[in-house]
Design a protein around this nucleic acid. Sequence first.
RNA 1: CGGGAUGUAGCACAGCCCGGUAGUGCGCUACGUUCGGGACGUAGAGGUCGCUGGUUCGAAUCCAGUCAUCCCGACCA
Length: 491
Amino acid sequence: MAKELPSRSEDYSLWYNELVKKADLAEHSDVRGCMVIKPYGYSIWEKMQQALDKMFKDTGHVNAYFPLFVPKSYLAKEASHVEGFAKECAIVTHYRLKNAPDGSGVIVDPDAQLEEELIVRPTSETIIWNTYKKWIQSYRDLPILVNQWANVVRWEMRTRLFLRTAEFLWQEGHTAHSTPDEAVRETLQMLDVYADFAENFLALPVIKGKKSEGEKFPGAIDTYCIEAMMQDGKALQAGTSHFLGQNFAKAFDVQFTSKEGKLDYVWGTSWGVSTRLMGALIMAHSDDDGLVLPPKLAPIHVVIVPIFKTEDELNKISEKANEIASALRKQGYVVKFDNRDTHKPGFKFAEWELKGVPVRLAIGPRDMENGTVEVARRDTKEKQVIKLDQVVAEIPNLLDNIQKNIYQRALNFRADVTTKVDTYEEFKRVLDEKGGFVQAHWDGTAETEAAIKEETKATIRCIPLDAKEETGKCMYSGKPSSRRVLFARAY
RNA sequence: CGGGAUGUAGCACAGCCCGGUAGUGCGCUACGUUCGGGACGUAGAGGUCGCUGGUUCGAAUCCAGUCAUCCCGACCA
């Protein structure tokens, strides 16, 4: 009762906020715009990290760590980069505090001003390319395929748990190559890794595409992205991969001698996903009863709830429950036997549903008598009673089935809210009445893009990589267009 | 950063207009009855009223500042 959620369809934002807090994922800190990720939420993030990290290693990458602080002058070296990030930087100006002369507390010591201010990294391109300059002389030093797990700070005006916080956790890959082809291949490879991860672990279908000039990363030649659809019809950028060309190499004077003995600037990429994926995970699958986790990312796969009146009953049930639990654990599943005698079964059912545990087993005296167990799946809330000796064999199939089902559900939802339109009137009507992705022709100009954004708040999410060649007319300007692009209102 | 709202017990909120011993529900603790979908009864514990300053004999209440959160804008690879 105390934990009941607001309805998803009534107020999506409220539902989201309450769910994040009540499912024990995260909460706002008292520190401006910052978030506390609670143990349960963090354990999901850890599972994401493990899966991603393995995929990075499998594609030849290694991890390293670079400083949190970036000297102001580094950030200034790449013109569009500084322009893109200047408005949201936290800056360290002093290195010492002292007691206030009037005894009112501590103050910043005015004598301890830094000669050059340090920026708390909003992203690490600059400090990393400054380092790469020292690492690279020859084509033999290339490629460099480095990833970093870190926190970054972007002083956003308005924050939202997981989706936009002042500080967030992420990984950022930064690679250096001797040829543009290789760098472009790397950029696209990592985009594929992200899409693969989203679909196979998050159970979240994504659209791979390229950003328009207006939406691309400051300092990139091309920005590629994966775009996902949330249950309220708004899009979410779930990851990006940038082809940096020689922009950062030129800004930081990173040159190498090629096989032919010629001096050239290094070609770069960068790519990242963040704790924003947690937001995507929550908004894509959950319902009014709480979180729905894909089994591959669930910190607990199976919870066993005993139903008992007496200690004697509990002991008998525990014996069976522990048998099942240890058999499942041997197969690598995380099983929670919730034998608390402080809460009733109904309370436990509701609590584990709120937390999104994919499978729940309930065993009571009735089951003990019949040699059965009640199996409930979180995604559909279906319950069935099966033989006790079959349950261990059934669970892997069931978990697999749940993983596939929530992916399929999200895919169906996305298809339902994806609309093809040819006129601007229709475009506006679809956005207001239905939301979702809108496929429309665009003349390719920044002016049209900006005007549409201004008038409808919808942005070009991406130019899908698999967009078919199709002659048409821009819905806004009437000028010719050769393919449809994807519009949506977005987070 | 602009407009609006909020900040009082772990949580949700009332009290503020009209200044005078800090309230309610949930949760928490103990005991009893319960236990197959969020139990009930009885008794109890728990609060520098966001923070700083001002007005006043006296401030949760009035005034100023400040910090944070929420909504709308702006901003946001």
